[in-house]
Design a protein around this nucleic acid. Structure first.
Length: 315
DNA sequence: AAGACAACCAACCGCGTTTCG
DNA sequence: ACGAAACGCGGTTGGTTGTCT
């Protein structure tokens, strides 16, 4: 298929935007909207390609964009979501109000990634860099090492944030993203008597089983103290990842699937639609190969779940 | 003071996906 | 149903700024 070049090279400006160009673009978009980026530059009197205009607007000029240092909460959210989603910057950005995917990507590459590497963690898997060489079955030692690394990781971030902004109140965001609901601090997971934790972990667990076929293939029967896992667990074949596609997915599930009724109304009663979307995406794209791996993986709240609240019977 | 190096971030590029005629 | 155009995403680049020696 013939494809237009990404932008016309001849006669168009490149490089940094001037304040004059910014002004033209801003006033045009705010007045007329941004229906057609290709034709927008000419209409706005700009010698730029539409793609460049779009990027400039989305990443810099949009009025509600939040700039400046990332807070500790944002840092934690990025870390958690990246552990689940990988480099899905736009999906991660959707959980950080007013942050752009480009901003988050830059922050990741220049800050968090280096921090993980310096801690001996693989920035892709968030696990110790040499984890692959360890024996999986003799995992108690490596499991402990992983958990210790996660705790150290969080503690490092917290201390850095404390030093950076002493006024910040940790974990107190008005728009608390979904992953925060899973639990923000690894220490929480160590309290076996926390009913909130058990409910949440059960909810997450049920959701994960219901949406990720790789788990279903490994488990023939599962019981939890709170939730019966539906036997007709939905097979997820949809690999779409953009937010726009979530809407279709959501509609489909809520209106036509008994399975989803269970997910939305019983498993995760306190979750907003967006929360479910992100969680579903997380587990659909999970790179984990076993239940044990995800339970000891990057979500601290999952630690101990396998013993505390869920019984898994071998296939 | 100045050069070297590192860190940051805006912008570009190519490709995949979605929309539209 | 098909192809072209438009859009969106993620990886990468390169210019600018800050820090160190």
């Amino acid at each position: 298929m013939g494809r237009m070049p990404c932008c016309e090279k001849v006669g168009l400006n490149r490089g940094p935007w001037t304040s004059k160009e910014d002004k033209k673009l801003s006033s045009y978009v705010q007045k007329h909207g941004h229906g057609n980026w290709r034709s927008l530059p000419a209409k706005a009197g700009l010698l730029r390609c539409g793609k460049s205009c779009r990027l400039r607007w989305i990443n810099y000029l949009k009025p509600d964009i939040k700039r400046g240092d990332f807070t500790f909460e944002e840092d934690c959210t990025i870390l958690r979501l990246h552990a689940l989603l990988g480099n899905k910057w736009s999906t991660i950005a959707s959980q950080l109000p007013n942050r752009t995917d480009n901003d988050i990507k830059n922050y990741w590459n220049t800050n968090i990634k280096k921090r993980l590497i310096s801690m001996g963690l693989d920035p892709i898997t968030h696990q110790p860099a040499k984890a692959n060489t360890l024996e999986n079955s003799g995992g108690e030692q490596s499991k402990v090492a992983i958990n210790m690394n996660h705790i150290a990781q969080w503690e490092t971030v917290r201390l850095e944030a404390e030093a950076r902004e002493s006024k910040s109140s940790f974990f107190h965001s008005p728009d608390q993203p979904v992953i925060s609901k899973i639990h923000s601090q690894p220490q929480c997971s160590r309290d076996p008597h926390s009913t909130e934790l058990n409910t949440t972990t059960c909810n997450m667990y049920a959701l994960m089983l219901s949406t990720n076929p790789c788990f279903q293939s490994q488990i023939s029967m599962l019981s939890s103290p709170k939730l019966p896992i539906p036997t007709n667990a939905r097979q997820c074949t949809d690999s779409k990842s953009s937010l726009s596609s979530y809407k279709g997915f959501d509609d489909e599930v809520i209106e036509t699937s008994d399975q989803t009724q269970i997910i939305t109304e019983e498993c995760v009663p306190n979750w907003q639609d967006d929360d479910i979307m992100v969680a579903v995406e997380a587990f659909k794209t999970a790179r984990y190969e076993s239940i044990q791996e995800i339970l000891t993986g990057p979500l601290p709240c999952m630690e101990g779940l396998i013993n505390d609240s869920v019984e898994i019977r071998s296939v």
